[in-house]
Design a protein around this nucleic acid. Structure first.
Lengths: 216, 216
DNA sequence: GCTATTACGCTACGACTCGTAGCGAAAGCT
DNA sequence: AGCTTTCGCTACGAGTCGTAGCGTAATAGC
C-alpha cells in the first residue's frame, strides 16, 4: 500500500477485502497477460472494483505489482532438515518453486526492469521482497552455528558482507537458471549448487580484505 | 534481425546503416525512457527512420531490444591474468561493468520479463545473448586445465552440467547484486565471489548424482 | 438517529501509443 | 533501359492512460 491509513480517521474505512481482491486479480492478470500486457483497467474489472479505486491506493502498475508479488515470497520458510547442506537445498528448492509460477516470474522481472530507472521503486522492491527474505540466510547460519557446522562469526562487518554475497549467489543463480537458461532448478541442480556454495563457506577465507591478491 | 535477407535478392537492398542507427537509437531510448517508456515511434524518430521501416525488420519492441542489447555483451573477452581465480574475477568485473549501463540493465530485464510468457522470445534471448557468452566459461576452463589448475574432465555430460551451473551462478550473482541489491559488484565483491566459486570447483565433487546425501 | 467525513462506483474525457495500409519515390540488380 | 524491393510519409481505428466530476455507501463522533 502506498498511503497507509494513519491509525483511524473519521469516515468510511478502506475495504480490506478490496485490497485482497485487487492483489489477487493482479497476479491473475500477470499470469494471463504478462507484465507489459497487464492493464489496470483489466485488474479493476477482475477484482470487481472501479479503476479509480486502484489509483486511489497505488500510484501505478509498478507499485501494485510489487505488493502483489511480495505476498508470494512470504510463503518461504526455513525447514529443519538436519544439516546445513540440506537446509540450503530446501530453501533453494522452495524459492525455485515460487519462481516457477508465472505471476512471480514476470511480475518480479518487470518490476526489476523498471526499478533500474527508479530508485524509489528499487528501494521498495528491496525492502518489500528481498530484505524480508534475508531472514532465511540469517536463521540458517545461526542454526548451522549451533550445530557446529559453521564457526561463530568474528568480524560482524565481514559477516554482513558474507550474508549479502550468499543471498546474491543463491537468489541470482536460481533466477538465472529458471528464467534465462530456462531449465528447471530441480533437486539435482540444487545439490550441485549447494555443494559449491558450501565448500566456499566452510573453508576459511584466506584474504577477503587484506593485501593484494595472493589468491593463488 | 528477424528476416535475414536470403543471400542476395533482386531489388533495393536494406540499408545496413539504418540497422546500426536503429539499434543505437534503441539503446539511447532505453537509457532515457526505460523499458516500458520506450516506444517504437520514438526509436524511429531518433534513428531518422520511418516507423514503418522498423516494423518491416522487427516484429515488435521485444525482438528489437534483444538485438540492441546483444551487441553490448559481445564486448566481453577473457583476459589472461595468469590464474583461474584472476581470470574469473576479470570476467565478472567486465560483466558487471556492462550490466551497470542503464541500457543493458533495463533492456535485458524487460526482455527477460516478457520472455517468461513467450517461449520463442526466451529462446532468442538464450541464443543471442546467453549462449554466446558461454564461450568465456569454456575458454577459461580450458586455460585452467592447461595450467593444471583444474583436472581434465572425465564425464562429458557432467562437465556440461557444471558449465551451466557456473554460468548460472556467475551471471545470476552479478545481476542480482547490481540490479536487486543495488550495490556495486566491485573488486572486493568479485574477490569474495571467486573465492567461493573456486573452492567448490577445485574440490572433487563427492556425490553429485550417486546415492542420497552424504554431503557435509 | 443525525451529521461530518471519507471511500466507492460510474462515466466521460483528452492525450497518447499501437500496428497497419496505401501511396509515390528511391536504390539497387540484370 | 526494366524489374524488384525498400523507404518515407500520412492517415487510420483500436486501445490505454491517468484524471475529474458526481452521486452514493459506509463508517465515527455527537
Amino acid at each position: 500500500m502506498q498511503s497507509r491509513t494513519p491509525a483511524s480517521r473519521t469516515g468510511r474505512p478502506r475495504s480490506a477485502a478490496a485490497d485482497a481482491a485487487i492483489l489477487a486479480a493482479t497476479r491473475e492478470g500477470l499470469v494471463e497477460l504478462g507484465w507489459s500486457g497487464l492493464t489496470l483497467s483489466d485488474v479493476a474489472a477482475r477484482a470487481g472494483v472501479a479503476k479509480t479505486t486502484l489509483y486511489r491506493r497505488w500510484s501505478g502498475k509498478h507499485e501494485l505489482v510489487v505488493d502483489a508479488v511480495a505476498e508470494l515470497f512470504d510463503e518461504l520458510v526455513l525447514p529443519d532438515r538436519g544439516s546445513l547442506a540440506a537446509d540450503i537445498e530446501g530453501v533453494v528448492l522452495q524459492f525455485a518453486a515460487i519462481l516457477n509460477r508465472p505471476e512471480a516470474k514476470c511480475g518480479l522481472m518487470g518490476v526489476v526492469a523498471e526499478s533500474t530507472r527508479d530508485d524509489a521503486l528499487r528501494e521498495r522492491v528491496r525492502t518489500s521482497i528481498v530484505e524480508r527474505q534475508k531472514r532465511l540466510v540469517l536463521a540458517g547460519r545461526a542454526r548451522a552455528q549451533e550445530r557446529g557446522e559453521l564457526p561463530p562469526e568474528a568480524d560482524p562487518e565481514e559477516s554482513a558482507r558474507t550474508v549479502d554475497l550468499i543471498f546474491d549467489m543463491a537468489a541470482g543463480a536460481v533466477v538465472h537458471r529458471t528464467l534465462v537458461s530456462g531449465k528447471p532448478a530441480d533437486e539435482e541442480w540444487a545439490r550441485g549448487f549447494t555443494h559449491i556454495l558450501l565448500l566456499g563457506l566452510t573453508t576459511p577465507a584466506p584474504n577477503l580484505t587484506p593485501p593484494g591478491k595472493t589468491v593463488s
